[in-house]
Computed example of a mutant assay.
Amino acid sequence: MPTNAKWLNKVRWDEHGLVPVIAQEAASGDILMFAWMNREALARTAELGEAVYWSRSRKKLWHKGEESGHTQRVVEMRLDCDEDVVLLKIEQKGGIACHTGRHSCFYQRFNPEGEDWQAVDPVLQDPDTIYSAQKKSHE
């Protein structure tokens, strides 16, 4: 899919050529994660029907689940009213979106009494087993 497609031009990219993206589980409405996309990532997402993000730390495209196997099938893509945030409604393969082995990356809740963040959602699978099993399958 060309990265100069008309629909991509409607997105208001930031000064780094990125747009924030929210991944929401289509069935439950749970917000699973936040990430970034560049034009190529958004075009690839539309083409593949699976989420492809831009890794700012690795400075490369990141097909969600390429290491863990926990891919995100895109049910619907939406653009907010300011045209500067993308919402992906997705089906999360394996029920785990977070690299910590949890369903959602938003697993910490603020505790005003302790004035701290508290993990409130369980680890569904040990991250070491997720990523070591994937490495073994690629060997």
Score class of each variant (00 low, 15 high):
Met1Cys: 13
Met1Tyr: 11
Met1Ala: 14
Pro2Ser: 14
Pro2Ile: 13
Thr3Gln: 10
Asn4Ala: 14
Asn4Lys: 12
Asn4Pro: 01
Leu8Asp: 11
Leu8Val: 00
Leu8Met: 02
Lys10Ile: 11
Lys10Cys: 10
Val11Pro: 01
Arg12Gly: 09
Asp14Ser: 06
Glu15Gln: 14
His16Phe: 14
His16Tyr: 14
Gly17Ala: 08
Gly17Thr: 07
Gly17Ile: 00
Gly17Asn: 08
Leu18Thr: 03
Pro20Asp: 07
Val21Trp: 05
Ile22Met: 00
Ile22Ser: 00
Ile22Pro: 08
Ala23Gly: 09
Gln24Val: 08
Gln24Trp: 04
Ala26Ile: 00
Gly29His: 03
Asp30Met: 07
Asp30Trp: 11
Leu32Ala: 01
Phe34Leu: 11
Ala35Ser: 06
Ala35Leu: 03
Ala35Val: 00
Trp36Asp: 01
Met37Thr: 07
Met37Val: 09
Met37Tyr: 08
Asn38Asp: 08
Asn38Lys: 01
Arg39Ser: 08
Leu42Asp: 10
Arg44Gly: 12
Arg44Met: 11
Thr45Gly: 05
Ala46Pro: 00
Leu48Met: 13
Leu48Val: 11
Leu48Ser: 09
Gly49Ser: 11
Gly49Leu: 05
Gly49Asn: 07
Glu50Ser: 06
Ala51Lys: 06
Ala51Ser: 05
Val52Trp: 07
Val52Phe: 06
Val52Tyr: 04
Tyr53Arg: 04
Ser55Gln: 08
Ser55Cys: 06
Arg56Ile: 05
Ser57Ile: 09
Lys60Asn: 14
Leu61Lys: 08
Leu61Cys: 02
Leu61Glu: 06
His63Glu: 12
Lys64Gln: 05
Gly65Ser: 10
Glu66Gln: 11
Glu67Gln: 13
Ser68Lys: 00
Thr71Ala: 13
Gln72Tyr: 09
Gln72Ile: 10
Arg73Ile: 09
Arg73Lys: 15
Met77Pro: 10
Asp80Thr: 07
Cys81Gly: 09
Cys81His: 01
Asp82Val: 09
Glu83Asn: 13
Glu83His: 13
Asp84Ile: 01
Val85Phe: 03
Leu88Asn: 04
Leu88Tyr: 02
Leu88Trp: 07
Lys89Ser: 03
Lys89Leu: 02
Ile90Lys: 05
Ile90Val: 12
Gln92Met: 07
Lys93Thr: 15
Gly94Gln: 04
Gly95Pro: 01
Ile96Lys: 07
Ile96Thr: 02
Ile96Leu: 02
Cys98Arg: 06
Gly101Asp: 03
His103Lys: 13
His103Asp: 09
Ser104Asn: 05
Cys105Asn: 05
Phe106Gly: 00
Tyr107Gly: 06
Tyr107Ile: 03
Gln108Ser: 14
Gln108Arg: 15
Arg109Glu: 15
Phe110Pro: 01
Asn111Arg: 06
Pro112Arg: 07
Glu115Thr: 15
Asp116Glu: 15
Asp116Leu: 12
Ala119Gly: 14
Ala119Trp: 05
Val120Ile: 12
Val120His: 10
Asp121Ala: 10
Asp121Arg: 15
Pro122Lys: 12
Val123Leu: 03
Leu124Cys: 05
Gln125Arg: 14
Gln125Tyr: 13
Pro127His: 02
Thr129Gly: 06
Tyr131Arg: 03
Tyr131Ile: 02
Ser132Phe: 10
Ala133Met: 09
Ala133Thr: 12
Ala133Asn: 15
Ala133Gln: 12
Gln134Gly: 15
Lys135Arg: 15
Lys136Asn: 13
Ser137Lys: 14
Ser137Pro: 06
Ser137Thr: 11
Ser137Val: 12
Glu139Phe: 12
Glu139Asn: 12
